[in-house]
Amino acid sequence: MTKAKPSAALGARLSLQAHSRDNVATLLDAQLECATIASGLAIDRGIPFGHKVALCRIAKGSEVIKYGVVIGRATSAIRQGEHVHVHNIA
């Protein structure tokens, strides 16, 4: 099932999708100026270590899934590649 292997491709941020159902991934490095993750997905710059990024668009009110479970819901529409945290989920 889940392939949790993160790839350390050059010039891309290290990130980990904990479960195949997840719509967020956790960033695992401090390359804040870098704007892509290893899968090629473009992400916002400046997302800190340990914080989450949206792997797809998440509509307002929709489930935010990490570890394969619902950890919260979007309190505003979240773009693909956007920082996901207390400002847009609860």
Binding site: K52, Y67, V69, I71, G72, H85, I89
Partner: peptide, 22 residues
């Protein structure tokens, strides 16, 4: 926890809870 990137209590709880797998 919030500074470290955890957004909700469920997310924090799951960090330990994921020991149970699926």
């Amino acid at each position: 926890n919030i500074e470290a990137g955890l957004s909700t209590l469920t997310e924090k709880t799951m960090g330990a809870f994921c020991k149970i797998g699926s």
